[in-house]
Every structure is written in structure tokens, then in C-alpha cells.
Design a protein around this nucleic acid. Structure first.
Lengths: 150, 150
DNA sequence: TTGATTTAGGATAAAAGGGGTCTTGTTTAA
DNA sequence: TTAAACAAGACCCCTTTTATCCTAAATCAA
């Protein structure tokens, strides 16, 4: 159906929350979940996957929680999506060369490869540092508008 | 999960089969299904949707079947995908402006919009006339290779 | 007109995947 | 030692996908 899973949506919000945390202090997953409006238990599980992949660092025990494990500009949207969903293949024939027997004669195969390349490149270019910046700009604009000031 | 449905895959193969039929004669759905290696009953149902959308023309009765209802270069991959899957939205927030309350402050929204635009544009550009041509080139190459001739 | 053939449309069912909770265990600060 | 927090996995429910099947309607030919 060509659509982002909730899992990826939640994980992205969670990472964006950490990236927007200037001090870089540890934040517990429940607080992140509350702030981002996502199911806490589910987010906790998603963060496990992110921790395993090395994008976030987990701290156990009281005062525990999560922080980013690297600077936000080194983490792309694609990184997080693939961490929780697994690798993206627009079609099964793209899983690996030779997976589909029709590959050598199927003209659609090349179209999928091109489409996937375009999509992945785009998602690879979007990193969380940029996201935080444009998020701040957007919410500033929204606040100004709401207050009726210029 | 960001992947093409079988339904769309089958429908595309079916339309490609019709597009590759130079004479433009009516072909019954069962024959198309056999030739393309897809479930016959399922393909028949998918073609109903394509007929409703006006991409193929159906002929009932003996010697009945399907033909393209327009020239293949006027039909894009996106047309067929959306005919059987419905409109593509990479994320729910893209269903319509205002669907997501966070839209005015959410920085990810803009990324999705961009990604979707890129993907849809690409699929819109791929039409079945081109597909047939590159399919013929590919299978010619494959045949040559198999025979060991140059 | 009758019968054969083919699509139309809807009901239904099986399988898979997505979305989420819960329980139990482990780590660690106080 | 205790309580707070993550880790890991079992488990469940719901929706969607992927079909199949049956009856009806259209069409052609004998």
C-alpha cells in the first residue's frame, strides 16, 4: 500500500524529540511518548531497535532513559525507517539481484529500481539536524500567527 | 511497509500484456493470466477496476475479453497502481491539507510531501508504450545471450 | 430460443501484517 | 535493598491483502 508504518512515524517523532533536546540529557521514554502523543509501551519497544542499531543510547535504572548516540545531522530519516521496518523494497523483485526470474526480460523492474533509488536518496538526504531547524522555524511562525503579531 | 501490492503488480503485468498486443484484439482474462503467471480469478477482478476507470475496455460473451481503451502511451504506471490500490499517500498527514493537526509545526510533513511528489512524478512519467519498447529490447538481448550469438 | 462463453459484482474465507499490551527479567542509582 | 527504568519476548486483536466462488448479465451462434 505504499505507506509509512506507525512504527516508523513514532520512531521518527521520538528521535526528533531527542534531537531537539539541546542539552542532550537523558530523557525517559515515557516522557518522550507523552510529549509526542504516541503509545508509551510501543515507543519503548521501538527505541530498543534504535538502540541496537546504534542511533540512540539507552541508560537503565532510575534517571535512565535515552539520548542520541550521534549528532543529529548524521542520522537520516531513512536510517530510522529502516531501523524499525527493515530495509525498504518497493517491490519484491528489488530484494536482491536474481530474486525474480523475469528480471532479465521484465521492463518494469528497471522502473522500480529507479523509483526506489529516487525515494531512498531523498530520505537519505533528510537528517534530523535540518528537521529540528525547520521545526523551530515553523513553530515560531505558527506562534506568531496565533498571537496576531508580526 | 512501503511496498507495491500484488494487486498492482498483477494489474501492471496484465496491462503490459495488452499493450504488447500489436493487433489490439480482444484477449480473454484467463489467457492473460496464464501468460503472465498470475491467478486468473484475481486478475479478472482487478480488470474490473481498470475497466471502471476507463483504462481497459471489456467485451462480454464468447470471444470476449479485454483490450486497452486508450493508447498505451497515455497510461502511466501510476494510473494502474492507483486504479487498484486507491490514491497513494506515503503518510496519513498527506491525505489532505488539515488532516494532521501538527501540520503547521511538524517539520517531517514537508519531507513526506517532497518524497511523495518525487515518487508520483516518476511513476507518472512511466507509460506502457515505453514499457513495451524496453521490454522488447530486453527480451531480444536475453534471447541473443541464451543462444550464444551476437 | 437455447446454450455456451465470458465478464460483472458481491460474498466469503484464509493468511499475513501491523499495532499494541503485558509480563518477566536485568541494570543501576540512591 | 528498593525502586525506577530499560530489555526481551510472548501474546493478542484488528485490518488489509489475497485470493476463491457463486450468481447474474451480456453476447454470439446455432
Amino acid at each position: 500500500m505504499f505507506r509509512l508504518s506507525r512504527a516508523a512515524e513514532y520512531a521518527i517523532r521520538g528521535v526528533a524529540h531527542l534531537a531537539d533536546n539541546k542539552g542532550g540529557e537523558v530523557i525517559e521514554s515515557e516522557k518522550i511518548a507523552k510529549a509526542e502523543g504516541v503509545p508509551a509501551a510501543y515507543l519503548a519497544k521501538l527505541f530498543q531497535a534504535l538502540a541496537k542499531k546504534g542511533f540512540v543510547r539507552s541508560v537503565r535504572g532510575p534517571e535512565g532513559g535515552f539520548t542520541l548516540a550521534m549528532s543529529p545531522e548524521r542520522i537520516s530519516l531513512l536510517d530510522i525507517i529502516e531501523a524499525v521496518e527493515g530495509p525498504i523494497h518497493l517491490n519484491d523483485c528489488l530484494i536482491r539481484p536474481g530474486y525474480c526470474q523475469r528480471e532479465s526480460i521484465c521492463p518494469v523492474h528497471d522502473v522500480w529500481r529507479g523509483a526506489q533509488e529516487k525515494l531512498l536518496d531523498y530520505l537519505k538526504e533528510s537528517n534530523f539536524a535540518d528537521l529540528v531547524v525547520s521545526g523551530r522555524v515553523k513553530s515560531m511562525r505558527a506562534r506568531r500567527k496565533a498571537c496576531g503579531t508580526k
